[in-house]
């Protein structure tokens, strides 16, 4: 019995080691004065300095975050509307059709999304650059938000709305005072998911970004194709720290909101 538990734990430990090795490998060598990802020669912060002196890179980082925040905010609004639309549609077939269309972009490979958007923007005549990247990010984030919000809506007891109507609330009151507060955790989750997808996206952006505009993923790709440069390592360390902060923040927010909204939901 005891022995079995040990093997189980060993398996999990190996899993976690493998999952985190590449990340810590990057971080470790970001301090290597040797300039390569092997043979650690000496500690240096030179690569970090290089990152902070690289104005082009900093602008790209800024671009990436602006795109991510804008895209996830707009797609959250659209996604909530979409979820409400699907929720209110009464006909089963219509509902299923909407859901299927919603999921198309989620299951589609990135290259397909990228290639088809490239055609779309070229036909409509939108210049490839900031606008096209932003529109694409909004487009592929909307279904994610819908999928995060819809279960919350379906979880909501229909009598809740009836109760609000009974107490004299109009459509707008029902939406702002009952529905939106109830689905807030779903909205937050959707926003964060959209943010991650946007920050993480490479393939779609790679297709629809023109020559003048670049996001972090695309930049890393083009630098990595030229070989190893430890400023990428330094950058990845900074990004990893940022991600951890984001996760911890998200964890606390979700803990708090589950305490606020999940009172009845706990078994």
């Amino acid at each position: 019995m005891k022995r079995k538990v040990k093997w189980d734990n060993l398996y999990l430990i190996i899993m976690f080691v493998i999952l985190y090795t590449p990340i810590f490998y990057l971080i470790y060598y970001s301090f290597n004065s040797g300039g390569t990802m092997h043979h650690f020669q000496g500690f240096t912060l030179e690569w970090y300095k290089e990152v902070f002196q690289d104005t082009r890179l900093l602008i790209i980082v800024l671009n990436t975050f602006v795109i991510a925040l804008l895209a996830s905010a707009i797609s959250t609004i659209l996604g909530v509307m979409g979820a409400l639309a699907i929720y209110y549609v009464k006909k089963r077939r219509m509902k299923n059709l909407l859901l299927t269309l919603n999921n198309v972009l989620i299951v589609s490979p990135d290259v397909i999304i990228g290639a088809s958007f490239l055609i779309l923007f070229t036909i409509i005549g939108i210049q490839l650059g900031f606008t096209s990247v932003l529109l694409s990010h909004i487009a592929f984030s909307v279904p994610i938000v819908v999928l995060m919000v819809l279960p919350k809506l379906q979880e909501m007891s229909p009598t809740l709305i009836d109760a609000a109507r009974d107490l004299g609330a109009n459509q707008w009151n029902v939406l702002t005072k009952v529905i939106l507060p109830f689905i807030t955790p779903g909205i937050f989750a959707g926003f964060f998911m959209a943010l991650t997808y946007s920050l993480d996206d490479f393939a779609v952006t790679f297709f629809v970004t023109g020559n003048g505009f670049s996001t972090l993923s695309v930049e890393i790709y083009s630098r990595a194709r030229q070989g190893i440069s430890l400023s990428i390592n330094a950058l990845s360390t900074l990004l990893f720290l940022f991600t951890v902060l984001l996760v911890v923040g998200y964890y606390f927010i979700s803990q708090r909101s589950s305490r606020l909204y999940g009172m009845g939901g706990r078994k």
Partner: peptide
């Protein structure tokens, strides 16, 4: 387990350039 998915995919791929390199880990 999910946390690594929040690290940019390209960075993880890039890390393997080092790990799998001739003198890598």
């Amino acid at each position: 387990i999910i946390l690594p998915t929040w690290v940019n995919l390209l960075l993880k791929v890039y890390a393997f350039l080092g790990i799998f390199g001739t003198y890598g880990l």
